[in-house]
Simulated assay, not measured.
Amino acid sequence: MSVLEYLDKHMLSRKIEDAVNAAVRAKTPDPILFISNHMRKSVPSVITKVKARQILDSRGFPTVEVDLHTHRGVFRASVPSASSPGMYETVDLRIYLRNGVSRAVKNVNDKISGALLGMDPTLQAQIDQAMIELDKAENKSDLGVNAILAVSIAACKAGAAEKEVPIYKHLADLAGKSGYSLPVPSFTLISGGKHAGNDLAIQEIMILPVGAANFEAALQIGSEIYHHLKALITERFGSLGCNVGENGAYCKFPFLFPNFSLREGLDLVKEAIEGTGYGEKVKIALGVAATEFCIG
């Protein structure tokens, strides 16, 4: 193939001329950078590579991390590992007892990657559907939901980058929403169940600052109640009662009083809320995790 034939085949002369003209019209102070970005935008971005690996999560357990490559760059995502999944939840694929995720990693690298190559990262629904159809099991035990979710999140980041918008705007667009609002943050104050190993059957007693004017105010409310609860626990159970579990919530004091009930825990949280003066702005929530103590 001659030089002219190569230039004509890829329309290089025309594309370069378009980029130069765009730089001149914009009167950009850095024409080389402008032309480079202009040329990159002219190339449709597709998924070119998906690579998974095993990492450790915040609790020291193995989990899946994915790098998804497009013409825009590399987009990374990882997923948490649930300590008490529900009986009807999809399956987090792990090697029995050792908790390794090598099978899920292999599924990403050997199966999911090939199915997604060449796809447009902005088409989130199509990407997710391709993975759903690849795993015929209803609970996603063939590929593992940890493999599927990590790839899905990485693809979402790539889609947002392709559209040059923040991820929240990309998600709103996918959902057909035009308005944006931050969700109400939840704060876990007391841990029980599998998160703590104490005598509280349920997993979490939480608070929701639903009456806060904005996210900053909600964060302040949660922090003040958390520390006021610490003072109450210290006063009644001593400093040892303030030890926290893996998610930062208080969990030690029920050990000191084996008959400590859920009602007593709720009363303690209610007292902490009222003691900070936020009674009208805060709701109490429960993370029950009923599968861990009640089947049927």
Rank of each mutant, 00 (worst) to 15 (best):
G296N: 14
L262P: 01
T291G: 13
P185Y: 06
R25M: 09
V184F: 10
F61L: 14
N146W: 10
H170P: 00
T276G: 08
Y278T: 10
H227V: 10
D92V: 10
V269S: 08
E264N: 12
K252Y: 07
A104K: 04
E133S: 12
V20G: 01
I153A: 01
D199K: 11
N243F: 06
D18G: 01
S181Y: 04
A213I: 10
G179I: 00
C294T: 09
A175E: 08
H71G: 15
L208I: 11
A125H: 04
I233P: 01
L12K: 02
K9P: 00
Y180V: 14
V269A: 08
D8W: 07
A23M: 06
E89A: 08
K270N: 13
S45A: 14
P62N: 12
A272M: 01
I16Y: 12
R76Q: 12
A172E: 03
L232Q: 02
D135E: 11
I47N: 02
L256R: 00
F253K: 04
I207Q: 01
E204Y: 04
A213N: 11
L286R: 07
K27P: 01
G144A: 09
L116H: 10
V101C: 03
L116W: 08
V66I: 03
R72I: 04
P121I: 10
D30T: 11
L117K: 14
Y226L: 11
E280Y: 04
A23V: 06
F61T: 11
Q124I: 06
Y96F: 07
G277V: 07
E17F: 10
N107A: 02
A290K: 13
M11Q: 15
E138M: 08
K106W: 02
S178H: 05
R103N: 07
L123Y: 05
D142L: 15
F61W: 08
D128A: 04
A154R: 05
S58Q: 01
P258R: 05
Y226H: 15
D92M: 12
A158C: 03
L149M: 10
A289Y: 04
T276E: 14
G277E: 04
A172Q: 04
A201Y: 07
Q203Y: 03
S45Q: 15
P254E: 05
R72D: 10
M119Q: 00
P183Q: 06
S36D: 14
Y250R: 09
K281M: 13
L208N: 01
K15L: 13
F34Y: 15
V3Y: 15
E235M: 04
Y96V: 08
K136V: 15
P258A: 06
C156P: 00
A158I: 03
I55K: 07
V79M: 09
T48P: 00
S181V: 10
G179Y: 03
F257G: 00
V282K: 05
G159R: 03
D267F: 02
A26E: 15
I132F: 14
P166G: 13
L182V: 12
V46W: 00
Y226R: 15
H38N: 13
L117S: 05
T28K: 02
L174C: 10
I233Q: 03
K283E: 06
P121E: 12
V50K: 03
A22P: 02
N37E: 15
G296Q: 11
L174R: 06
S113K: 13
N243L: 12
M11D: 15
I167R: 03
G86N: 07
V244N: 06
D92H: 09
L143E: 10
R98D: 15
I225V: 09
Q124G: 05
P44D: 09
S36F: 07
Y6C: 09
V145E: 06
K140W: 05
V24S: 02
P121S: 11
